[in-house]
């Protein structure tokens, strides 16, 4: 995968930047890598579990639910020639996210509610990929409306789903099958899988817009 290298079992991303959230830095010759711990990032867990996500490096990405920017920082290392629009609603983690955005030329921070893409429709361009990591009950709906606004035809999506935040009263397996059914209305599903043992009762879903 582009700009990703394994150090033992742990992936790391090639980076010109220092540590963002306390992760280790590995030096290999002149290159510098930032450790990407699967316990901290669902995307890392997915990669550790053997799933590949292809990047050419110049993608335009809309990132919904960027929180304090842990995963975002590595994604920014990977698409070093692209641009990431990072949406986060909660002001608290945004502080840390802003620190990151000030350093990285390929991150545009947006403090807004991801369920209302209207609000940032005059800011975000058409994107190649929507990455979504929201713990919200209607996260599929949020993905769909954002796709309508910003995702290119045949654009990709990658979403992280936490069973508990969608419905904590039924079995995770039931939640996941419902989510997959809903997602498949607008997307052709490419891959899906769990993130055990790094993130319990979570799955990822990747797809292409129909």
């Amino acid at each position: 995968m582009r700009n990703v290298k394994f150090f033992g079992n742990i992936p790391a991303t090639k980076s010109r930047y220092g540590s963002h959230y306390g992760e280790k830095i590995f030096e290999v010759g002149r290159e510098r890598y930032r450790e990407w711990v699967p316990w901290r990032s669902k995307l890392s867990a997915m990669i550790v579990k053997g799933y590949e996500v292809e990047f050419s490096g110049n993608e335009k990405i809309l990132y919904l639910g960027a929180a304090s920017g842990t995963t975002l920082s590595h994604l920014a290392d990977i698409v070093d020639e692209g641009m990431i629009y990072a949406v986060e609603y909660s002001a608290k983690p945004f502080k840390k996210l802003l620190e990151l955005a000030r350093n990285r030329e390929n991150i545009i921070p947006i403090l807004a509610d991801a369920s209302k893409p209207q609000e940032y429709s005059g800011v975000v361009e058409k994107v190649d990929l929507i990455y979504q990591d929201l713990s919200q009950r209607n996260q599929v709906e949020i993905l769909e409306i954002n796709s309508k606004f910003f995702l290119k035809r045949r654009g990709r999506m990658l979403m992280m789903v936490k069973a508990k935040s969608i419905d904590s009263t039924v079995e995770p397996r039931e939640v996941f099958s419902l989510v997959l059914k809903e997602v498949s209305e607008a997307f052709e599903i490419l891959a899906t899988g769990d993130l055990e043992p790094y993130h319990r009762d979570h799955i990822f879903v990747s797809g292409v817009r129909k």
Binding site: A91, K95, L98, R102, I107, I108, L111, V123
Partner: peptide, 19 residues
């Protein structure tokens, strides 16, 4: 992108502090 980033950061900073 340089201008967009600068404005986005300024706006977000302001909004965050206020919130």
């Amino acid at each position: 992108y340089k201008i967009l980033r600068k404005i986005a950061i300024e706006v977000a900073e302001e909004k965050m502090e206020k919130e």
